[in-house]
Write a protein that binds this DNA or RNA. Structure first.
Lengths: 119, 119
DNA sequence: GCCGTACTACGATGAGTATCGTACGAGCAT
DNA sequence: ATGCTCGTACGATACTCATCGTAGTACGGC
């Protein structure tokens, strides 16, 4: 054993460390917005591989980290899988209505364009 | 006369050209968020020089352009001054509740930190 | 033990951007 | 006309970031 000190522990900002600018920045990317939208639709914990994203796995990891470090999602390990869920209660407490209006806006915009294949 | 063709006309996206990702990105910068907050508080058209920002004039121009090109504000010339106003109705129509919740969130966060000098 | 799956870490790269300084143009006042 | 103020344009710079490929680690099944 090489004392790998495998952290296997993921850093999350506490509720009062979450900054509005960073949340908005995290949501201002199409890939991440789609992740958040999918996560809001299913209301359970989802593994990273659940999402069928048009980017490689490296990039997917990057986007999930941005979401986690900005406080939008919470991630935890479960064996080899990593489960993700929205930090709804934290976000709603800090920024009431923000997440809902962003999700509604994203849905409306997706509908306005030709993206209804995700029924 | 050198046919300067001074455009003096500012390009704005039409309502249906406004993209959520770009709006969120425009709002994800501290300087721009502050501009939008000030603009929402006063509900009239404000000149660029009204805002006392911690950046140079060049940078200010840049930020106003980002806001305009993303569809968040509307700008027009009035003599030498350039007046700015929020595109509230367009944003509310496209993304109901979004602007209000962002403004509320920005206000709440500013209050949480030590920024109440703008009474 | 060995292999496969799930995800990460690291390095590279190309694009975007926040910032500045300086120089310029447009309009107003005198 | 001269000068002043407001804002823009352009170039430079340094930083961030979205993306990828490759190599590696952690866990579970065989």
């Amino acid at each position: 054993m090489t004392t790998t000190t495998s952290p296997r522990v993921l850093e999350h900002p506490t509720r009062d460390q979450i900054r509005l600018e960073e949340v908005l920045h995290a949501l201002s990317d199409a890939v991440r917005l789609r992740i958040v939208r999918d996560m809001a639709r299913e209301d359970t914990e989802l593994s990273c591989s659940y999402f069928d994203l048009p980017v490689t796995k490296s990039t997917t990891t990057h986007h999930f980290r941005v979401l986690r470090e900005s406080g939008v999602i919470r991630q935890m390990y479960r064996g080899t899988a990593k489960l993700n869920c929205l930090r709804r209660s934290d976000l709603d407490a800090l920024f009431p209505g923000l997440l809902d209006s962003v999700l509604a806006a994203a849905g409306a915009q997706a509908g306005r364009e030709g993206e209804e294949g995700t029924a």
